[in-house]
Write a protein that binds this DNA or RNA. Structure first.
Length: 585
RNA sequence: UGGGGGAUCGUCUAACGGCAGGACCGCAGACUCUGGAUCUGCUAGUCUAGGUUCGAAUCCUAGUCCCCCAGCCA
């Protein structure tokens, strides 16, 4: 983690709480946090916020942060997810050291605590069916009814609970419930179920157990067992806090962590619900969990987003209890900020247009020196081959350029980055289609390296590659997956689903892009800046030695695109205005 | 006549009774061998109505709007 990241941390309500707790020596001045994912899916940028917060506070206050898998429901959880989650947290730059835990490691302890609860008359075995339990629970406005099994003797409860563990009953036949208050306004306190029977093997404990604890019971106890001081979770658990505290108050535990709730992250043009992300994968909208368009950590990794940029983003968005939607532009900003500092610059032409430099000697070649990263001299330089025939970007030439277009046009002179000034002398078109096939130019040998000894200036500098030296590659242009800033909201308002707001242009595959030769040995996962275009990551799955495939991480800020857009708008409005006037006449 | 939360520039977020600040976005300009980066400037906010106070985003009262909760999910 660099210095900048260290001391730009803005204040937030959780940090204020921790600061006060340290001052008052609440937990002996210690800070112990945890990141507690359920291994039932892949991590996404929303989890990153939680990871950065939990590990961040631990780092900041010289404490520690545990990675704990909340694996209390064997019907949903798999080892595959455990492995993926570990990889993602590590990739984000965090180290849990020896503090890797599983709720399932505490199953025996949980069980003992449950017996303790029974022994003090605070839990009972209930024979009501799931439907009956629901009916007895009451509604939001009406109190619930007490279960007829609520007043069983401690001995009977203990016996029944032990037989539950022993596997004497079928799934759903009985549950263990806490004995709290069926009239509570908080539904979570209406004798919540804390153990259920599931004859299902667990990915870690195998078939050792056929009863499994519920979240509310397991989570507070896991926190307590591990000596967590600050247990951070999202807003929807606010209602569960009284229950969290109830268990820890009633049971004999040494440690009573403080649960603090914060608003989870939402992003514009993005969906983050696990259910919906799964749907995108299952229905083949994306190629998998690690599709570069996915907001998953693995997707972002494959897309080329740097971990430091993601971390920085998570710091900048702050933490509060207000539900909010962060502009994805901020994420892009943080990504560019990091990549600008770290990505080596290269030249690649996405839509090639051939240029023949007529006064350059045929057969001649030279090596020109190019800077690898103007932001950091330690990246050094490289040499780029130049010759008589080159490719330039098709969009860098206009036959009839509008005002403010500084690039190549007939009779115009521009600079080829790190090479020479060239002037366009002729445009060669396909006779049938009228499409521009090739440009003829002349170069000024005196401008080698990019400067004119006579001091004359050119407004535009464009990138290029030498035809004979460049190699052809596939480049994938990724864009936002959705074309609406609030796909979920829009869907419910317009009676559609989030799938109706998929961006049809979220992926454009370009083949025949011409890249400078140095990129042949691009390492998969490495991100480069293609000068004047954007940042591109060598795909970690589809690249082969000598033949990389590139994913566009994010474009460069494009001022020209804005100007162009404005031109088009003016044009449209202009023609409308004219039409209107005509109509009036 | 259930319970729990939340409302500050377009967006995200500070200010804990003392000049409403920062970041992103947007706009304008400077600079530039990347129309990148960098630099400068501008626009723009306390949900409403009362009250307390020399002074209120902050305290009090009454409203309004939004979110969450009736899994043997987490």
């Amino acid at each position: 983690m660099n210095q900048k990241e260290e001391h730009t941390k803005p204040s937030n309500f959780i940090r204020n709480i921790i600061l006060e707790d340290i001052k008052s020596n609440k937990h002996g001045g210690k800070v112990v946090t945890r990141f507690p994912p359920e291994p039932n899916g892949y991590l996404h940028i929303g989890h990153a916020k939680s990871i950065v917060m939990n590990f961040g506070f631990a780092l900041e206050f010289n404490g520690r942060c545990h990675l704990r898998f909340d694996d209390t429901n064997p019907t949903k959880e798999e080892q595959e997810y455990v492995d993926a989650i570990k990889e993602d947290v590590r990739w984000l730059g965090y180290d849990w050291g020896k503090h890797l835990y599983y709720a399932s490691d505490y199953f025996e302890k949980f069980y003992q605590y449950a017996e303790q609860l029974i022994k003090i008359g605070k839990a009972f075995v209930c024979d009501l069916s799931p439907e009956e339990i629901r009916k007895y629970r009451g509604t939001l406005t009406e109190p619930g009814k007490e279960s007829p099994y609520r007043n069983r003797s401690i001995e009977e409860n203990l016996d029944l609970f032990r037989r539950m563990r022993a596997g004497e009953f079928k799934d759903g036949q009985r549950v263990l419930r806490a004995r709290i208050d069926m009239a509570s306004g908080n539904l979570n306190m209406r004798d919540p179920v804390i153990y259920r029977i599931m004859h299902v093997p667990h990915h870690r404990t195998g078939d050792k157990w056929c009863i499994y604890p519920m979240y509310d019971f397991a989570h507070c106890l896991s926190d307590s067992i591990e000596g967590i001081t600050h247990s951070l979770c999202s807003l929807e658990f606010e209602d569960h806090r009284p229950l969290y505290d109830w268990f820890l108050d009633v049971l004999e535990v040494e440690c009573h962590p403080q649960q603090i709730e914060f608003a989870r992250l939402n992003l514009t043009f993005t969906i983050l619900s696990k259910r919906k992300l799964i749907q995108l994968v299952r229905e083949g909208v994306v190629t998998g969990w690690d599709d570069p368009r996915m907001p998953t950590i693995s997707g972002m990794r494959r897309r080329g987003l740097p971990p430091a940029g993601i971390r920085n983003f998570c710091e900048r968005i702050g933490v509060a209890k207000k539900e909010s939607v962060v502009d994805v532009a901020l994420l892009e900003y943080c990504v560019r900020e990091e990549l600008n500092r770290t990505a080596p610059r290269v030249m690649g032409v996405l839509n090639p247009l051939k240029v023949v430099i007529e006064n350059y000697p045929p057969g001649q070649e030279e090596e020109l020196e190019a800077i690898n990263n103007p932001e950091d001299p330690s990246y050094g330089t490289r040499s780029v081959p130049f010759s008589r025939e080159i490719y330039i970007e098709r969009t860098d030439f206009m036959e009839d350029p509008p005002k403010k277009f500084f690039r190549l046009a007939p009779g115009r002179e521009v600079r080829l980055r790190y090479a020479y000034f060239i002037k366009c002398t002729d445009v060669i078109k396909d006779e049938e289609t009228g499409q521009i096939k090739e440009l003829r130019c002349t170069y000024d040998p005196a401008t080698k390296g990019g400067n004119a000894p006579d001091g004359r200036k050119v407004r535009g500098t464009i990138h290029w590659v030498s035809c004979n030296h460049a190699f052809s590659a596939e480049v994938r242009l990724y864009d936002r997956l959705f074309n609406h800033p609030y796909p979920d909201r829009a869907a419910s308002e317009e009676g559609k689903t989030f799938m109706d707001f998929l961006n049809p242009d979220s992926l454009k595959i370009l083949r025949g892009c011409m890249l400078e030769p140095s990129l042949k040995k691009a390492e998969p996962g490495r991100v480069y800046q293609f000068e004047r275009i954007g940042y591109f990551c060598a795909d970690s799955k589809d690249s082969t030695p000598g033949q990389p495939v590139f994913n566009r991480t994010v474009t460069l800020r494009d001022t020209w695109a804005k100007i162009e857009k404005r031109f088009q708008k003016q044009k449209k409005q202009g023609s409308k205005g004219r039409k209107r006037k005509k109509g009036k006449k």
